[in-house]
Design a protein around this nucleic acid. Sequence first.
DNA 1: AGGGTGGCTATTG
DNA 2: CCAATAGCCACCC
Length: 104
Amino acid sequence: MDEYQQQLYTWMAQIPRGRVVTYGQLAKLIGRPNGARWVGRQMGLLPKGSNLPWYRVINAAGRSSIPLDKCGSNKQLRLLQREGVLVVDGRISLRRYQWAPFAN
DNA sequence: AGGGTGGCTATTG
DNA sequence: CCAATAGCCACCC
């Protein structure tokens, strides 16, 4: 287990229900300014039994970056809606839902 | 080594 | 608004 992964997991665990963060934001938080893509990769590699909220991590456009499932729907968006996040046209307002770690 | 591909992004038109 | 563009970086042939 790598040092960055440890940090990534720690930050992820802090994301409150009903809020989201972007790949780039997480990358910055763990000290990897251009590691957004790396973060995305880590999401896909998350252990299956993990309780970490991978679905609260979205892209900078406020959209889900994971492919649609067979039914043509998106599991990530469903999970977010279940937490009360409003999704309009497959898009989420970062202004309203993005978690700001240092604004507490 | 070296080209292609991603759960990316900021900028520009 | 979307599309193109140009950086970025880890991973996999």
